[in-house]
């Protein structure tokens, strides 16, 4: 499978301040990659280097197989970008804004643009300066998707949107993937990442601390399980299992944290009469907090 984004040993300094430190990252074509980190972790810096707005201090990046420099300006025909802090021409109406950027991006299918405007419930006749943050964000989304790019780089795509439009955005991302696009997504809203992301990368203080398939991370993550027995809770039940931490033992129940495979736990408890098992799948937020705190 082709690689849509490749970052090798990327380091970026702002003066003496190190913003990124030897970041290595690959996003396969037609994947949805979520790039997660707190404010100031280096997400936007990475994105801006991917889009050629900043030069790497060390290392290299390629987007869609090309270095995103002024020599390869045509690569931007295939990239849709939504900035995290969206600034648009205030004096234009939404329609004028879309016309201007549509022309720059060589849009040919204006029917598709109209359908995006309709789905996102945009108000094209109003001046941008009169719109709320959420309504401006909708135009930002339309501009990112309007030319059906092969690569979408979306920084906080649902910022300021109401729940309905958040859902529409998730649908647009899924549709873009189904149409062959690659999506590189940065967000603080873990629920939306959970809905769409296939691979996630956590960045902390300029370093990529973990990168893996979301399913793999979840299956390897700490799982909280409560087991309820028909009789008294057996004593020293999990003493021989290194990956189990007993949190609380009641008369007929036990609460444990399990990392990695659940198989040994299931095999042990299967010897007893169980009335209930309550297991909570770790959310991406739990994963993030665990990795972030442990690093």
């Amino acid at each position: 499978m082709a690689v849509a984004i490749k970052i090798e040993n990327l380091t970026k300094y702002y003066g003496k301040i190190k913003a990124l430190s030897s970041v290595n990252l690959e996003v396969q074509s037609n994947a949805i990659y979520a790039f997660i980190g707190p404010n100031g972790a280096g997400k936007s810096t990475t994105i801006r280097i991917l889009l050629g707005m900043l030069n790497p201090t060390e290392g290299s990046v390629t987007t869609l197989g090309k270095t995103p420099t002024q020599k390869n300006i045509n690569v931007f025909n295939d990239i849709g970008y939504l900035p995290g802090e969206l600034s648009m021409y205030q004096n234009l109406t939404g329609q004028e804004l879309l016309k201007f950027f549509g022309n720059l991006k060589n849009v040919t299918d204006w029917t598709y643009v109209d359908s995006l405007v309709e789905r996102l419930n945009c108000e094209p006749s109003k001046k941008i300066k009169t719109l709320s943050k959420g309504n401006k964000q909708k135009f930002g989304l339309v501009m990112a998707f309007m030319h059906k790019p092969k690569l979408l780089i979306l920084d906080e795509p649902t910022s300021g949107l109401d729940p309905f439009m958040q859902q529409t955005t998730v649908e647009l991302v899924k549709e873009a993937k189904n149409n062959g696009s690659t999506i590189f997504l940065s967000s603080h809203i873990f629920s939306e990442i959970d809905k769409v992301a296939e691979t996630v990368g956590f960045i902390k203080e300029g370093e990529l601390i973990v990168e893996d398939k979301l399913e793999t991370l979840k299956s390897n993550a700490l799982k909280s399980i409560q087991i309820e027995f028909n009789n008294n809770t057996p004593i020293n039940l999990f003493d021989n299992l290194d990956n189990v931490q007993v949190l609380e033992t009641g008369d007929n129940s036990i609460k444990i944290n399990v990392t990695g495979s659940l198989d040994p736990v299931i095999k042990i408890i299967s010897q007893f009469e169980i009335t209930n098992i309550i297991s909570e799948e770790p959310s991406i937020e739990d994963l993030f907090m665990n990795y972030y705190e442990s690093n």
Binding site: L51, N77, Y81, M88, M143
Partner: peptide, 11 residues
């Protein structure tokens, strides 16, 4: 900040 959208267009 409006330059951001301009320089990420194919121009």
């Amino acid at each position: 900040g409006t330059l951001e959208l301009l320089v990420t267009s194919p121009i």
